[in-house]
Write a protein that binds this DNA or RNA. Structure first.
Length: 305
DNA sequence: ATCCAGGGGTCAC
DNA sequence: GTGACCCATGGA
């Protein structure tokens, strides 16, 4: 491990590693990263190179340690860019905080969730598959299904006896049969959607680059919902989590509705006028507001539901 | 047993 | 464009 594998990333203002860590370590059985005390370890492919890295808090900086032996010369630089993007470290969120502070029911978030960033999922294929998995089932079971998929068909790097998994490649999922996924307790519908979406990636019909190339959110949304299994909720989730489009609201999301209800911001699940009214005050920061509202679901006072 | 869960497709109007 | 209905599967 030479000096090249030590990387430091300066923390921006209104950024809390602890809050981001909290999000990544919610009470779910996540299989794509490991939390150990106050550090995160994850594996990924960067331009085809498999890297395992550990993030930890260094006060004014975040330190990144590459665990994989013999990383390529450009690995540190690419990894740094990945992490800045992953934890949304380059964004100035102070305008969002000003909007929160101006809202009596949401003001507390600027203190209780201070420094939380919109943590992304870089891989569009992974995001869409994750959406399909999570559609209409409880999150606990969704994470279970994801783990089965990842450990069944993904790849891993092993460091000191621990396996760090990477989400399966589109080519692998595209070649599966519906029956193989049904054995993992995927419904027929989920199995068909995932195989179909994976094939679309293999054939080059979908890619993150192609989506980015579209000029407007509306065109990106249309392009996504044209895919079988991708509805408006999934499209908005993917735009928010992978393209970091900040104008996206996953309408109908049960967690979002529960959070709005907890804050007494809506009367019932069909109160779309109240939802529109709230989000109209957060133009340009809708996705951040959604993310913070999801965060609020873990607040003990809102847990009794 | 019954209802719900970070939806989506289809089909009628 | 909107609404009713079906699809699936585990968890509480």
């Amino acid at each position: 491990m030479g000096p090249n594998s030590a990387i430091s990333i300066p923390k921006p203002g209104l950024f809390s590693f602890e809050e981001c860590l909290w999000f990544l370590n919610r009470n779910y059985d996540e299989c794509l990263h490991h939390i150990n005390g106050s550090s995160i370890t994850k594996a990924l492919f960067l331009d085809g190179e498999c890297l395992v890295f550990t993030l930890s808090d260094e006060g004014k900086n975040i330190s990144v340690k590459i665990e994989t032996p013999d990383p390529s010369p450009r690995a540190p630089e690419k990894l740094k860019a990945f992490i800045i993007d992953w934890l949304d470290m380059e964004r100035n969120v102070s305008p969002f905080y000003r909007l929160l502070k101006a809202h009596p029911a949401l003001d507390y978030m600027t203190r209780d969730f201070a420094g939380l960033r919109l943590i992304s999922i870089a891989d569009l294929h992974e995001t869409l598959c994750w959406c399909i998995i999570g559609q209409q089932i409880n999150l606990g079971f969704a994470y279970k299904l994801k783990r089965r998929l990842v450990e069944g068909f993904g790849e891993f790097a092993e460091i000191n006896g621990t396996r760090y998994w990477i989400f399966p490649r589109p080519e692998v999922l595209a070649s599966l049969s519906v029956e193989q996924l049904k054995q993992l307790q995927f419904s027929r519908q989920k199995a068909e959607y995932i195989i179909h979406i994976s094939k679309q990636f293999c054939e080059g019909n979908i890619s993150k680059e192609k989506l980015f190339a579209l000029p407007t959110t509306e065109e990106r949304r249309k392009s996504l919902t044209a895919i079988r299994g991708v509805g408006i909720w999934t499209a908005n989730y993917a735009l928010m989590k992978t393209l970091k489009d900040l104008n996206c609201i996953p309408h109908g999301d049960i967690g979002l509705l529960n959070a709005l209800s907890n804050h007494e911001l809506i009367k019932d699940r069909k109160d779309s006028k109240a939802i529109e009214k709230l989000f109209s005050k957060f133009r340009g920061w809708e996705s951040y507001l959604v993310f913070y509202l999801w965060r609020s679901l873990a607040v003990p006072a809102f847990q009794s539901k």
